[in-house]
Each structure stands twice: as structure tokens, then as C-alpha cells.
């Protein structure tokens, strides 16, 4: 709350301004450092960082070879956080991810169960080709992503924040895959589609990779700084009419809404959960901060609405049969929703 003293008010305002500037500077450093390795993909990088700073998770969808794994690995190096990678396969079991209790013989010769942590226990987890694992294994991630803790048998293990899951999936090779269930999808804050790079970016990628000189990145932030950035992002104000606008967008993803567009009523089976609204507002804050704003605006909401809602809209049979893209539906919702 605002202090009563005007001088204190001014000081608090100045501190807030300083925090905002620091945030922007750190964000800019992170971006620039990642872009030393990743060519292009400015929006993908900002999206991934937004999810990281918003304490969310991201699902990257793209064909193989587009640098998804490199992006995640680079991110881990830049933020100086533990990085873990799991290649999801059909025979991957939940214990392979979470860990398991093992019988360990102590120094005194006694044997007892000891929890052996899996690769899940890290700060940044890359779940590569997450749709190749069985739903049982995929579900092993649910508690970790939603609650930041893991329960094995009767023992819960808290994950060390920040905990950030980056999952990837290949949209083309669908044979032998297990599409993520809605509950799993809803845990991801963003679903980012990694596009094929344009010719200029592709040329730059070739120049960097085939020359034998792999670019190296340095850590620009630590864990504490990252947590501080998350705290700063939570303090940026959102006006009520902006929040209402975001919620109207969310409401219109449901076919039962009277104001929903015709495409939603025709092709959508179920709309977004409230996590979609949370994702929009969190990401909008990061975007507003990054743009140098001191409050969230309509543009920020509009910009993050697509990655936050596209994977939360479930198409019906007609929509699936006609190959309707949820991006088009979200775009129509944005076009038909008045700001004020």
C-alpha cells in the first residue's frame, strides 16, 4: 500500500521505477544472451522467458531440428539454474521421471529405503517429445507442474523454485504418440509454435553451426535475481477494465457464451479454464514491463492471448474434421471483443 508520507510516497515510486528498470535490463540481457545461440525466434524467446518469470511452464511445438532443445539448454546456462532433460519414450515410466525408493545399506550395515530423486528434481526441465510417453508417464508431471512438489508413496518432496518445465512435441509424427490430455495441457502456461526460420535466419544458423565455432553463453542472472524478477512482475498493476477485457476473451472461448463468435459455437467443444485467464494476465504483465510500461494495456493482453488460449480450446468433432485451427478461433475472438 502507499505510504502516507508524501516523501515516502515519492521514494516508493522511485523504488518501483528502479525495480522496473532493473527488470527490463535483466530481461534484455537474458534475451540478448540467448540470442547469441538461438537465431531469430524473438517471440519464442520472450514467450519462454515470460513463462519462466511468471512461474509457469511452456509447451513448444515444432518439427525436429528447429533448436528447441538448444533453446532450453541455453536458457539453463544463461540463468545459472539446474537443467534436466528427459527424452520421453513409450516405455518411460513415472518412476523414471520422479524417482524411486531404493534399499540402501547404511554405514552400520542397516538397510533402509531411501528416495532416489529422478530427473524431475531440477530447476529447468526439458521434457523432450513429451507426447511419446504414455499418459501414465505424462501424468507424472502434473503435480510437479501445478504444485511444485512430488509425492512418492506417502512422502512429498518439494521442488526447489523456480521450477520451470519446457516440453516439446512434434506435430507431424503422430504415429505411436499419445496426445497430451486436457488436464496436462492446461498446466502449460503457453503453447508456443516454433516456426521454420526464414532464409536470413537460416543462413545465420548455418554460418554459426557449420564453422566449428559454437557460440558460448555466459550466465547473466542467478536464481535469486530470477525470483526477484518474478516478484517485480507480480507488482505491476492491472486496471479493472483491462482485466475484464481479458476475462471477456476467456469467456468467449466457451460455446455456451451468448457473445461467443460463431466459430466458437460451431467448432469448439470446451473453452479455456480459469488457468487461461491467469496465464493471460501474468504474461501480459511481463510483456508490459518488457515494453517499458508501468501498467498492463489492451495490447499486452491481445499479444499473449493467442499462446495462452490456443491449447486450452478443445475442438469438437466437426472442428477436428474440418481441420479448424484454434489460432483462427482465438483471432476471431480477439476481433469481436470490444475493449471498453
Amino acid at each position: 500500500m502507499q505510504p502516507a508520507n508524501p516523501s515516502a510516497v515519492g521514494e516508493a515510486v522511485a523504488q518501483a521505477a528502479e525495480r522496473f528498470e532493473t527488470f527490463r535490463a535483466r530481461f534484455a540481457r537474458l534475451t540478448s544472451e540467448i540470442q547469441k545461440v538461438i537465431v531469430g525466434y524473438q517471440e519464442i524467446i520472450e514467450g519462454v522467458l515470460s513463462c519462466l518469470l511468471s512461474d509457469g511452464h511452456v509447451l513448444l511445438e515444432g518439427v525436429p531440428g528447429l533448436g528447441k532443445t538448444i533453446l532450453v539448454r541455453t536458457l539453463g546456462e544463461v540463468v545459472q539454474l539446474d537443467f534436466g532433460r528427459i527424452q520421453f519414450t513409450p516405455d518411460l515410466m513415472p518412476a523414471d521421471i520422479i524417482g524411486t525408493n531404493l534399499i540402501v545399506q547404511g554405514p552400520d550395515g542397516s538397510r533402509q529405503f531411501q528416495f532416489q530423486r529422478g530427473p524431475l528434481f531440477t530447476h529447468i526441465l526439458l521434457a523432450d517429445e513429451v507426447n511419446r510417453a504414455t499418459p501414465k508417464t505424462q501424468s507424472a508431471l502434473l503435480q510437479a507442474m501445478a504444485e511444485g512438489q512430488v509425492t512418492v508413496s506417502t512422502q512429498s518432496y518439494t521442488l526447489c523454485p523456480p521450477y520451470f518445465v519446457i516440453a516439446t512435441q512434434n506435430p507431424l509424427e503422430m504415429e505411436g504418440t499419445y496426445p497430451l490430455p486436457e488436464a496436462q495441457l492446461d498446466r502449460f502456461m503457453f503453447k508456443l509454435k516454433v516456426p521454420f526460420p526464414n532464409l536470413e535466419d537460416l543462413n545465420t544458423i548455418m554460418n554459426r553451426t557449420i564453422g566449428g565455432q559454437n557460440p558460448s553463453v555466459s550466465a547473466v542472472t542467478g536464481r535469486e535475481e530470477l525470483l526477484e524478477m518474478q516478484q517485480v512482475a507480480r507488482r505491476i498493476p492491472i486496471a479493472p477494465h483491462i482485466q475484464l477485457y481479458a476475462l471477456r476473451l476467456l469467456e468467449k472461448t466457451h460455446p455456451i457464451c451468448k457473445q461467443a463468435p460463431g466459430a466458437v459455437k460451431q467448432y469448439v467443444k470446451a473453452g479455456s479454464s480459469p488457468r487461461g485467464g491467469q496465464a493471460i494476465l501474468k504474461a501480459a504483465r511481463i510483456r508490459a514491463l518488457v515494453r517499458g510500461e508501468t501498467a498492463v494495456g489492451f495490447e499486452d493482453v491481445q499479444a499473449v492471448a493467442l499462446p495462452a488460449l490456443r491449447h486450452r480450446i478443445l475442438l469438437n468433432f466437426e472442428g477436428e474434421a474440418e481441420g479448424v485451427d484454434t489460432d483462427d478461433i482465438v483471432a476471431q475472438i480477439l476481433a469481436e471483443t470490444k475493449k471498453a
Binding site: M1, Q2, V9, A12, V13, Q15, A16, P237, T294
Partner: peptide, 9 residues
């Protein structure tokens, strides 16, 4: 109820 961030804005 006005935060420093709101005042800054």
C-alpha cells in the same frame, strides 16, 4: 489502495 506502481503509472 493506490500502490507505488499505480502512482508511478
Amino acid at each position: 489502495r493506490r500502490t507505488p506502481e499505480m502512482q508511478l503509472h
